[in-house]
Deep mutational scan, measured.
Amino acid sequence: MSGNGNAAATAEENSPKMRVIRVGTRKSQLARIQTDSVVATLKASYPGLQFEIIAMSTTGDKILDTALSKIGEKSLFTKELEHALEKNEVDLVVHSLKDLPTVLPPGFTIGAICKRENPHDAVVFHPKFVGKTLETLPEKSVVGTSSLRRAAQLQRKFPHLEFRSIRGNLNTRLRKLDEQQEFSAIILATAGLQRMGWHNRVGQILHPEECMYAVGQGALGVEVRAKDQDILDLVGVLHDPETLLRCIAERAFLRHLEGGCSVPVAVHTAMKDGQLYLTGGVWSLDGSDSIQETMQATIHVPAQHEDGPEDDPQLVGITARNIPRGPQLAAQNLGISLANLLLSKGAKNILDVARQLNDAH
């Protein structure tokens, strides 16, 4: 009898209710805020589980004197976190989706994509230029951005401005803007500013005609071990179906173009009346040469937790077992079709030249 009692006690200790789920994140304040929001949602869904947040620095956090596009290494903000995932030191990792490459290392998958916040870019102005827009900034004003995508589009749109690289986390960039006289304004992701509670610093939100956004911008991705079915089931509740389908289309477009950090590629997606609209573009580094096109596809946005595919093969690095396969494939095909259209119009040449120029500098 006593033996059975011990077995029952052991089973209770090993039951999922007692389990601590370890969540990996970057150390920056924004990353911690984003991770806290994901953990809060998981806690609400699984009140019996405990969650421990483990923060670590990544290569991208450490190399702050070089433009991201020049470092010449993929997975700048993800490699150390993936290493911890691989060694079973954490069970899942919360990322900004735009930091996750469209091809993940073997053994990993994006197990959830959370509801997207505003994906557009924002302009934050130096205190002396508050009330201005990019259009009304004085001639030769210097605007800071760490992104080739932003610089290429904005140089084309605002030729009277000069664009220079600015690195560091959000706090560091804002301090550089406010305390030094080098920059009249800087460009940042609206979602990051909003998550930090800095709505009052948003001086201008850039519309798609001015600057399309990065693939996955404004959404959070939760990376897990691809074979860890328990954790895949656990994080599945975080999937937002519309965000998922938009981001599958965007990531398929980028992957098929073979774009990345070192080339200016941008997108804009919208879901309306059962249609998914995808606009994508590529630019030369100075913005003088560009190709942009829009395509659409009829896609039914499923309700969360309709029964999805059981075999769960990944699409552009994403596993969404609780979302039907048909809409996911339709979104992926839309991204591939748009990429093929741009490639047929000469996108590869623009991107190759951009890559060579970026590598040469």
Rank of each mutant, 00 (worst) to 15 (best):
R156T: 13
I54F: 13
L49I: 07
S141V: 09
L92W: 02
I205R: 07
Y277G: 04
A354Y: 00
C247L: 05
E258T: 03
I299G: 01
S28I: 01
E179Q: 12
V235A: 02
H126D: 11
T25L: 00
T25P: 00
S284C: 10
F77L: 03
A270P: 03
V39I: 06
R156G: 08
Q180V: 09
G216S: 12
L188V: 02
H268K: 08
I323C: 11
H300L: 12
R321Q: 06
S45I: 15
N200K: 14
M196I: 13
R175P: 05
D178G: 12
Y46I: 10
Q180P: 10
E242N: 01
K132H: 10
T66K: 02
M271G: 13
L81H: 10
L285S: 05
A347K: 01
K74V: 04
R355M: 15
A40Q: 07
L278T: 07
E250P: 01
R255M: 12
A189H: 00
R150Q: 02
P138H: 10
C247F: 05
A122W: 01
E89Q: 14
P208C: 03
E52S: 11
V263R: 05
R325K: 08
G346Q: 01
V265L: 10
D178P: 02
I53E: 07
I21G: 00
S37E: 11
G48S: 12
M295H: 03
V222A: 10
N349E: 09
A320F: 03
F77S: 04
L174V: 10
H95Q: 11
E52H: 05
Q217H: 04
V265H: 01
V265N: 02
G317M: 15
I205P: 02
G236A: 14
F125Y: 15
P106S: 13
L100Y: 12
A270I: 07
A270R: 13
V23Y: 05
Q296L: 13
V124E: 04
E182K: 07
P138W: 05
L254F: 02
P138G: 08
K272F: 13
I187R: 03
D359A: 15
Y277E: 03
N340V: 03
P208M: 12
T298K: 10
V143H: 03
G280D: 04
E209A: 03
D240S: 02
Q153M: 07
V267I: 01
E223V: 05
G218N: 00
H120N: 12
D228K: 03
L104F: 09
E182G: 15
P138V: 09
A214V: 02
G280S: 04
V123C: 07
V267Q: 02
S146R: 10
A55C: 08
V224W: 03
Q50I: 07
G308N: 13
G107A: 10
Q304K: 14
E179K: 08
L357H: 15
L315M: 09
I291Q: 12
T41P: 07
L341Y: 07
P101C: 02
F108E: 15
L315G: 06
C114K: 07
D311W: 08
I299F: 14
A360G: 14
T269R: 00
P101N: 07
L206I: 03
L174Y: 08
C261H: 00
D240A: 08
E258L: 03
A252Y: 02
G274N: 00
G287N: 03
E210G: 04
E52L: 05
W283M: 01
V142A: 12
N88K: 14
G144I: 02
K70E: 09
T25N: 05
Q332T: 13
L278P: 06
V215F: 05
Q155Y: 09
S344T: 13
P327T: 07
I299L: 12
K176H: 09
L85P: 02
R175L: 09
I166H: 09
G197Y: 07
V316L: 13
R32V: 09
L206Q: 03
R201Q: 09
S141I: 06
L343C: 06
D311N: 12
L188E: 02
D311G: 14
S37L: 12
G260C: 15
W283G: 08
N171H: 12
S141R: 09
H160D: 12
T279S: 10
G144R: 07
L238R: 04
S344I: 14
L177F: 05
E135N: 07
I113T: 06
A112Y: 05
E242Q: 10
G221A: 07
Y277P: 02
G144W: 04
L278W: 04
I53K: 11
P324F: 02
G192Q: 00
V353H: 15
D233N: 13
T59R: 08
S45V: 09
Q217E: 04
S96W: 00
I291M: 13
H83K: 12
A219Y: 06
L134Y: 01
H95Y: 04
E179T: 11
T145R: 05
Q204T: 01
A360W: 01
E223Y: 03
E82P: 01
H160N: 13
P302W: 11
R201Y: 15
G131D: 09
S337L: 15
K345A: 13
A67S: 01
I350K: 00
A40R: 07
L343Y: 01
I53M: 09
G281K: 02
R321P: 07
Q314Y: 03
L232K: 12
D61F: 00
T172H: 07
R116H: 04
A55F: 15
K157P: 08
C211V: 10
E258F: 06
E80R: 09
W283F: 02
T190V: 11
M196S: 05
G168L: 04
T279W: 04
S96I: 01
N340P: 01
N169I: 03
E82F: 15
K128N: 15
A303K: 14
H305Y: 14
H207P: 11
P101M: 05
Q296R: 13
A44T: 12
K87W: 12
E223F: 00
G60T: 07
N349R: 14
H207D: 08
K62D: 15
E258I: 12
L97C: 07
S69Y: 10
G221C: 09
H83L: 14
K115Q: 11
L238C: 04
L193N: 06
E82C: 06
C211P: 01
N340Y: 11
E306Y: 05
H305A: 02
T243R: 05
R150K: 02
Q304C: 13
L343K: 05
G72L: 08
D352L: 12
A303G: 05
H83C: 13
